[in-house]
Simulated assay, not measured.
Amino acid sequence: MSRLSVHVRDPQSSDGHQGTIPLVLLHAFPLDSRMWEPMLAELGDLPVVTVDAPGFGASPPASQLARSLGCPIAPSLRTYAEAVASALRAEGIERAVVAGLSMGGYTALALAEQHPEMLAGLGLLDTKATADTAQARATRIRMAERVTGALGTRATAPMIDTIVGETTRRERPEVVETVRTWLAAAPPAGVAWAQRAMAGRRDRLATLAGLSIPALVLRGAEDATIGDDDVAAMARQLSDADVVTVPGAGHLSALETPAAVARPLRQLWQRAAAAE
């Protein structure tokens, strides 16, 4: 059976956390699980699992996963969520704290809707629970068409100006260059599938209202794509949510300011572990 590529931190290094729930991290579009590497050291001894999205990193194409899981072939974040649930269970993980950034957050919301029993805690980082506007959907479909045409991955290059914050562009050139390199190397088929899947997602604010688990809603203060109103809308629906704004970070907050994002994620994990 085809499965997503998952990267499990050695439980022997978790210093007393063996047998506890892991922290599962779902990356942003159009990157892969490498985006979490700067933050892993900041998380210390926590048991952490990172996942490559369909068609990204070492994961198989979405169409292959859909056939294996018996899901519709049409691009959908529901397929991604089912693939996450299947991959975690294959690792013996039945419950976890799941945190996603941007597209990873959309997928965490789909997982909360489809498999709420698996979530001990939920982290929503630089993401939102509402559906795209008609204009945003059209923009996604246009990129999906361009990236699989003659332009290729050059279609993703302008994203650097919106997904990386102003402070990072000014003071952290190494982060900017890393993101630029990853954008250029993004797999066209994976980019197209993900854009179409995100364009088709629906409003999941009601999903949040049905959860009674510890949650974190976090936003980089310089995020040009997620606003304070998006954060407030999600926080209002959650019964036990910490709300954090990270100074000097844009949309890729976990990559831009890993220590500042790791702290509230660790606190989320601690709250969830204590409630289990």
Rank of each mutant, 00 (worst) to 15 (best):
S2D: 12
R3P: 02
L4F: 08
H7W: 04
Q12L: 13
S13M: 05
S13N: 07
S13P: 05
D15Q: 14
H17F: 13
Q18I: 12
G19M: 09
L23I: 04
L26K: 10
L26T: 07
L26H: 08
H27N: 04
L31C: 06
D32V: 00
R34Y: 06
E37W: 07
P38Y: 11
L40G: 04
L46D: 04
V48Q: 05
V51Q: 11
D52E: 03
A53Y: 00
G55M: 10
G55V: 07
A58V: 02
A58R: 14
Q64F: 01
L69C: 14
G70Q: 14
A74L: 07
R78D: 13
T79S: 04
E82T: 09
V84D: 03
A87D: 01
A90M: 11
A90W: 03
I93Q: 02
I93F: 03
E94L: 10
E94F: 03
R95S: 06
Y106K: 00
A108C: 08
E113T: 15
P116G: 11
E117G: 15
E117V: 12
L119I: 04
L125M: 15
D126E: 14
D126S: 12
K128V: 00
K128D: 02
K128W: 11
T130S: 12
D132T: 08
A134C: 06
Q135K: 06
R142G: 03
M143D: 08
E145H: 15
V147N: 04
T148D: 10
T148R: 14
G149E: 13
L151K: 07
T153F: 03
R154F: 02
T156L: 13
A157Q: 06
T162W: 03
G165W: 05
E166R: 13
T168P: 08
R170W: 08
R172Y: 12
E174G: 02
E177C: 02
V179N: 10
R180K: 14
W182C: 05
W182R: 15
L183N: 07
A184G: 13
A184H: 13
A184T: 10
A185Q: 14
P187N: 10
P188F: 03
W193Q: 04
Q195S: 06
R202C: 04
D203M: 09
L205A: 06
A206R: 10
L208I: 03
A209D: 14
G210D: 12
L211C: 10
I213Q: 00
P214Q: 04
P214H: 05
A215K: 00
L218P: 01
R219Y: 06
R219K: 12
A221L: 09
A221T: 06
A224R: 12
A224D: 04
G227Y: 05
A233N: 04
Q237N: 04
A241Q: 05
V243T: 12
T245G: 02
P247S: 15
P247H: 12
A249Q: 14
H251A: 05
L255S: 03
L255K: 04
L255F: 14
L265Y: 07
R271Q: 14
